[in-house]
Simulated scan of single mutants.
Amino acid sequence: MTNLVPPPATSGKSLLERVEDALLPLINLVFLLLMFFIVAGQLANEPLPELPGAAASGQEQTPDADLKVTEGGGWLAGASSVDEQTLLASLPEPGAGQPLRVAAAESVTMAELERLFRILERGGYKDVLLLTEPGP
């Protein structure tokens, strides 16, 4: 019976030597990529430019919101303080083309926000935008 597959041409090398020869180009490629990223990282040590619209000074701006939630959990619609009974009457009509913008103080808990959002949902507000400020 004859062999259908010819024996591998070994050229006198063992299997381990042939595997090492096949890995050498891969090792060279990894080394070249490593060198490229080291050099590219050294070339770009300039600081990133300021983003357009970013505040150059450290002044804080109050967000333009329809409703503000204060640190104690109180609500401000415009400049006046409102309670649960007068909240919906002091806000713009729901579905007026824009979402209701709500700004909350940093210390307001999620439970307080959830209570507010449930009241707003019962009042017909389906689109509510929670305004946030980036941290330092």
Rank of each mutant, 00 (worst) to 15 (best):
D64L: 10
V39W: 05
G58N: 10
A9F: 03
F31V: 09
N45S: 05
A79V: 05
P49A: 13
P7I: 03
M35K: 04
A79E: 11
G12T: 10
A22K: 08
E60R: 08
A22S: 02
L48D: 05
I38C: 04
L33S: 01
P7L: 15
L32T: 08
A54N: 13
S80Q: 13
W75I: 03
S11R: 10
F36R: 10
L23S: 04
D64P: 00
F37C: 05
L67Q: 03
P52Q: 01
A56P: 00
P25V: 11
L43M: 09
M35L: 02
S14H: 03
L29Y: 03
S81V: 06
P6K: 09
L16P: 02
A77S: 10
E46C: 00
L29V: 14
P6R: 07
A22H: 09
S81I: 10
A55T: 06
G74W: 14
A77N: 08
P25A: 09
A44D: 08
A77G: 06
D66C: 01
I27P: 06
E71D: 01
K13D: 08
D66A: 04
G74R: 14
A9D: 05
L32M: 00
D21A: 11
G72L: 13
G12K: 12
K68E: 15
A56G: 01
T62W: 15
L24Y: 06
L48W: 07
E46A: 08
E60M: 13
T10D: 01
K13G: 00
D66P: 08
E46H: 02
P49W: 08
L15S: 03
I27M: 08
S11D: 15
G78S: 07
T62E: 12
Q42P: 11
Q61K: 12
L33D: 06
L29K: 12
P47M: 04
Q61V: 06
F31N: 14
V82R: 07
A79G: 06
F31R: 15
P25R: 02
L67P: 02
K68Y: 13
A65Q: 01
L29R: 12
S57M: 07
P49H: 00
F31S: 15
V30L: 06
W75N: 03
I27A: 13
P8S: 02
L76M: 14
P49R: 11
I38L: 02
